[in-house]
Design a protein around this nucleic acid. Structure first.
Lengths: 258, 258
DNA sequence: CGGAGTCTTGACCTCTATCAAGTTTTGTGG
DNA sequence: CCACAAAACTTGATAGAGGTCAAGACTCCG
């Protein structure tokens, strides 16, 4: 009974902590105990919000924390010597930034806000210490990173030898899925990034992106008004990707317990 | 003195263990203790070698171990519904396979041998248990995964909006770097994969790959005889990539201790 | 209202995929 | 070790997707 009660409390506390800081990935679905969540919660720091365009960290900056997006959105990019930027990831609410910096202790990319964004900062040294004491947290960290690897490879797969149309469809569905995961609408959302950022990410010219949007609208697959996007025919988009269900459908925690 | 001695022994043991199983990534450069290395060594299992073309694991297989390549080489690929395969990674000696499977407990890709290959199998459950007891190992695991994320994003960056020439140059330099890291020549090596596998990986048609090789040879950048490759003008190749030094130059362990 | 940035549209041209033969290499069984 | 089939690779011709250049239309703010 006590055990039962304790469990319930634990779960409620976890959800609460997750809500306050978009830490879903980090807390769920592992069975972190209430005290564990407290401990985790204690090292997490709220930061002042970032304004649109503001930089969170620069390439080469020392790595000492990972970040969780609470609201808004960010992009990670590398800068080629010729000054061109290449966007490598978009970070939506509930997602983590900085995982690629752990091994070199230095950020290999620059992260900036696409929009006014609030974040939580998780000092990595403390997280590591905590992970040593909480096996569940440790495992969850590994899982998150594994998922990141999986996603990147999925994206790589998605880019290679695919037409511009296919790429855009894949990206739109990925965004849809990631918003839905946060409890937002899967079919109507506001694109946090500019067209040229979409095109940059997908390795296309901005002009191509513009033509693609027109074609998608003409085909009745989407409707657009500025940055407001509505997916009108998800099936058509899925058909384009060639993978009715595979892309980005899986979630951490969706696997069965054993 | 005793401490000193112990330390020396420890380092020698680590190197030894690494040599036997290509576990550099996992053991170095963290200060794993001799008993720690023993423990790690104990859970590592030698497998019978894989013949060329043989499958190590299939998409959807249950995940219960990660693997280290000792000799030979493997490829990871996903299969599209239309039956086409898309290669996502090549695995050279000293590199790890299966990290993308941790979060779903199921392999998202199929791995097969490009060549006769010998591997070490590291049961993941045991590795996790061990990592809980050995903080250094745990950190090193996180680092390796972080590096994997970094590499994938680097590759993504490399693919987006780059010409076929640039892609090939990037890949050749990456292979060169990875061989050099293992103590092999950075300029003369045997490509473990077929031309069409290279082209598949880079998202190009096999014909394009063939023409690229011819052009690279004509330009005096490389020389080729079957699968034997020699980089004749590394600077020219680097110039192509647009990043004189950034790509794949960093190594786990290159960062300073603190 | 104006001006900078962003997005769209059109014309053109380059790169690379595709198709279609060849040619060489590889692997296997006699 | 050779012969022969099956892959793998090369080469050429052609076409199409998408990049580039150039100009014009929105849109967002101050």
């Amino acid at each position: 009974m006590v055990e039962q009660h304790r469990n319930t409390v634990s779960i409620r506390r976890i959800r609460e902590a997750c809500r306050t800081c978009s830490l879903n990935d980090l807390c769920l679905p592992v069975a972190l105990d209430a005290p564990d969540v407290d401990a985790l919660d204690r090292i997490v720091q709220r930061r002042r919000p970032l304004a649109r365009g503001e930089v969170l960290f620069n390439t080469g900056d020392r790595f000492d924390a990972i970040y969780a997006v609470r609201t808004g959105a960010l992009k990670s990019m590398t800068i080629k010597e010729d000054g061109e930027e290449q966007i490598t990831t978009f970070h939506l609410p509930g997602e983590l930034l900085g995982l690629d910096a752990i091994s070199f202790r230095e950020h290999p990319s620059t992260a900036s806000a696409l929009d006014t964004s609030s974040l939580c900062e998780i000092p990595f040294a403390e997280l590591e210490d905590l992970a040593e004491r909480i096996p569940g947290l440790n495992r969850q960290l590994l899982r998150i990173m594994s998922k990141e690897i999986f996603n990147d490879q999925e994206m790589l797969h998605a880019m290679a030898r695919r037409s511009a149309e296919e790429r855009l469809a894949i990206l739109l569905l990925s965004l849809s899925h990631r918003f839905a995961r946060r409890g937002l609408s899967a079919t109507r959302f506001r694109l946090p990034m500019a067209r040229h950022e979409l095109s940059n990410y997908l390795g296309l010219a901005p002009e191509t992106m513009s033509r693609l949007f027109r074609r998608f609208v003409e085909n009745g697959w989407i409707s657009v008004s500025g940055k407001e996007l509505s997916l009108e025919d998800v099936d058509a988009l899925r058909a384009l990707t060639g993978s009715p269900s595979a892309i980005m459908q899986k979630d951490i925690g969706s696997e069965k317990h054993h």
